[in-house]
């Protein structure tokens, strides 16, 4: 195999005027693919392979113990016409995305602006503020959150100092989802770091010129900082939206995998998990996964399409 390939490579060099397509690919790209190989094997074997399998399974009934039965588009039909839980989980996830992403970005930007004032010990603060993001998706933090927002948890003990008797936040259907949104906002570290880098890129002389012209701090923020930061906002918004759609661990831990009380924390991913590993409907769960992929794709495409109206690249 190697010998023959080398040979064809050599003959291709001789007929340099009309090299065949394959030999050209071999000569130019082979080293590249060779270096890619470890990733490529993983990508094909662990990502593309399972994805294709899941696409097939999404058209079947499959309970793990017996072989899959082809049911056509039944799973998708049921989802959109006859599954209130699908819509309930969709509502919860949408609510979470719509509130957690903008709030998290606003908070991250505010902290980044605070840190961008040339204060001493910046690397330390940066690391400290980033810490929650490193811990964020972990089981330990979710358990900690459960304790903080429990009926006799930290939050209510603080409120009691002010004479307010708080509810049990995590077990009340009106507030349970908000505890998860706050948890998500608390993990503002990674967009903050990116905002900080973006803020550093803005030339200082613009602010100096604006100050000379008598522009207020707020005006400087609206007219200089925000427009020049839009590419970073755009990037952060897309990444965080995808993350929010995929969010699973906190809801799973805090509700004990149930999505309760009254399905108020039944994230789409949690419903998918329940269908797959709680009730062993792998086919239906696969269909749910593909609908989520399509949904995230549509959201991202929509962001890119509208970006030309509000994202300013300074070129």
């Amino acid at each position: 195999m190697t010998a023959r390939s080398l040979q064809s490579g050599a003959s291709a060099r001789e007929r340099a005027a009309t090299p065949s397509l394959w030999s050209r690919i071999w000569q130019n790209d082979a080293p590249g693919y060779l270096f890619l190989l470890p990733w490529l094997i993983g990508f094909l074997g662990l990502t593309i392979g399972p994805m294709i399998t899941s696409l097939y399974l999404s058209f079947t009934d499959f309970d793990l113990l017996t072989s899959p039965d082809w049911v056509g588009a039944n799973n998708y039909m049921r989802m959109f016409t006859n599954d209130p839980k699908f819509w309930a989980s969709m509502r919860v996830t949408m609510f979470f995305v719509v509130f957690s992403v903008p709030l998290k970005l606003a908070f991250a930007l505010a902290v980044a602006m605070l840190l961008n004032r040339g204060i001493k010990g910046l690397p330390m603060y940066r690391a400290l503020f980033y810490l929650p993001s490193l811990l964020g998706a972990s089981v330990a933090i979710a358990i900690l959150w459960r304790q903080i927002f429990a009926g006799d948890g930290l939050v209510n003990k603080l409120l009691l100092v002010f004479g307010i008797e708080g509810p049990s936040w995590i077990s009340n259907p009106k507030t349970s989802l908000w505890t998860l949104i706050i948890l998500s906002i608390w993990q503002f570290g990674s967009p903050m770091i990116i905002f900080l880098a973006g803020l550093r890129q803005i030339p200082q002389d613009m602010y100096e010129a604006a100050s000379l012209d008598g522009a207020s701090k707020w005006r400087q923020f609206v007219k200089i900082t925000l427009p020049l930061l839009t590419p970073v906002v755009f990037f952060n918004a897309i990444i965080q939206t995808i993350e929010a759609f995929k969010s699973f661990t906190p809801a799973f831990i805090i509700s004990g995998g149930t999505g309760n009380p009254i399905n108020s924390t039944l994230f789409y991913t949690l419903y998918l998990y329940q269908e797959a590993f709680g009730f062993f409907r792998m086919g239906y769960a696969s269909a749910l996964a593909w609908v989520l992929l399509a949904l995230v794709g549509i959201f991202t495409a929509f962001s890119f399409l509208t970006s030309k109206y509000w994202v300013h690249y300074d070129e």
């Binding site: 009926g151 049990s168 077990s171």
Partner: peptide, 14 residues
Amino acid sequence: SAEDQAIDTGPLET
């Protein structure tokens, strides 16, 4: 109350 009962998510500890 319903709110207290909802704390019970399965494990004996809850």
